[in-house]
Design a protein around this nucleic acid. Structure first.
Lengths: 235, 235
DNA sequence: CCAAAAGTGTTTGCCCTACACCCATGA
DNA sequence: TCATGGGTGTAGGGCAAACACTTTTGG
């Protein structure tokens, strides 16, 4: 490490909060949580929830705090992982800002409430956000794209999809997560077999759903942290 | 992003530089490049090459500069990617330091020369470094472990292994990379078939080696950025 | 001719896909 | 008894591990 210790940057965290939103009746759209900026720079544009890191907190603690402050979401029962760090000079007009982005996946996102620094908080379709240029502030479109790609990749080899579901869920709900995030359709029969035969992916609770057609088994997330064998994206 | 812009940290980059070192005649040990600290804190202990980011440079530019300054390695013909960011309060006794770590893979690492802030620069076996506690400064053992794990994982689905080889290499040399980094042994026949049949992984140059036994084809890295199908670790 | 290293053919078994089929409920 | 969605059986193809074998060089 170089010789001269000197404060040389403002370190912030940004959050890519993904959830499955209800465009129609079923949760069939991948959505992200954004806040509308109340102050300059980029006043009025939509940005990822974020904030500067405080003196005695770690980066991940800052991410949990910011998520609660700006959106009201609690950090428990929530998947949170570090995504990447963005530090181009000039990415923020105020000065040198280094942003460490975190990826958060939440089930059943409650209606967000804007914090004191935000004009509004809302859930947008990821597809729209990535298509429309100019709606998103700073370099947050790039950060969002990186977060979505990370989520897509991690569905393959980790049980991350369970983070999009409630504490108990059916195999069909889990399949819908894969279909929405990947943007593909999956054979229900083979998916069912694969999920239930992968050790540690899901555990049966013994309970079932009611209504509709035949009742479905309810499952909860299992102890596995990686999937053997992985769920492969169709290609 | 929160309201108050204020410089609140010293941002640094750290480099996990991996190479295949010659413990015996063949390159059969995964090694990392460390520098011995000349100044406090942690004077005399071994640390990853690193340094504070300067005003008008990006994080990746800082990584390239530090690599050159502290070890004499040039940034061209070198794989460099961002690994993760470490920001626990108290990880550096001088104050709040946020370190973004980069992973660098180099073939045929030349004898490193210590820069002005280092007492020495040397190549150590990764296995030794990760086993011995107390030899490595700060939280750099953790960073090194993360870098090694990233390299192991990326060998599976990217042509990263070619970054450990010279510009032209044989299939057997490429196989040795996999065996050393993964710590496994691989069937030479199946490996050969797999590598040469994966589109874009390697390209034949038409030339061959001389000496030893039957001459081997020489290859260079192909244009692929991901491997379809992936090379899977035995398990 | 023999040793050494490169590269090929062939078998075998597994996993994944596709799809036919049966199961359990509400109306 | 029909509609609806949940779950199982099974045949076929492709891929990859295992290993015998051929090829091409240097002594």
């Amino acid at each position: 490490m170089g010789s001269g210790f000197r404060l040389n940057a403002a370190v912030a965290v940004e959050l890519v909060v993904l959830t499955l939103g209800a465009r129609r009746s079923t949760n069939d759209t991948l959505c992200a949580l954004l806040v509308q900026r109340l102050y300059a720079p980029n006043r009025g544009r939509w940005a990822l929830p974020g904030g500067f890191v405080q003196q005695e907190e770690s980066l991940s603690q800052a991410a949990v705090r910011v998520l609660r402050e700006e959106t009201g979401i609690r950090g428990d029962r929530l998947h949170l992982e570090q995504l990447a760090t963005y530090g181009e000079p000039g990415r923020d007009p105020r000065g040198r800002v280094i942003s460490t982005a975190y990826l958060a996946l939440v089930p059943n996102l409650p209606a967000p409430t804007a914090g004191p620094d935000a004009a509004a908080a809302a859930i947008w379709s990821v597809e729209q956000l990535l298509t429309d240029r100019g709606r998103v502030a700073f370099d947050h479109r790039r950060i969002l794209a990186d977060g979505v790609e990370r989520a897509r990749a991690k569905l393959e080899y980790t049980p991350l999809a369970t983070a999009f579901c409630a504490s108990e869920f059916t195999v069909a709900e889990l399949r819908r997560v894969y279909e929405v995030v990947w943007g593909t359709s999956i054979d229900p029969r083979n998916f069912h077999r694969k999920v239930t035969s992968t050790p540690g992916f899901v555990e049966a609770t013994g309970r079932t759903t009611v209504g509709g057609g035949r009742p479905a088994q309810l499952y909860r997330a299992g102890p596995a942290r990686v999937l053997h064998p992985p769920m492969l994206r169709p290609n």
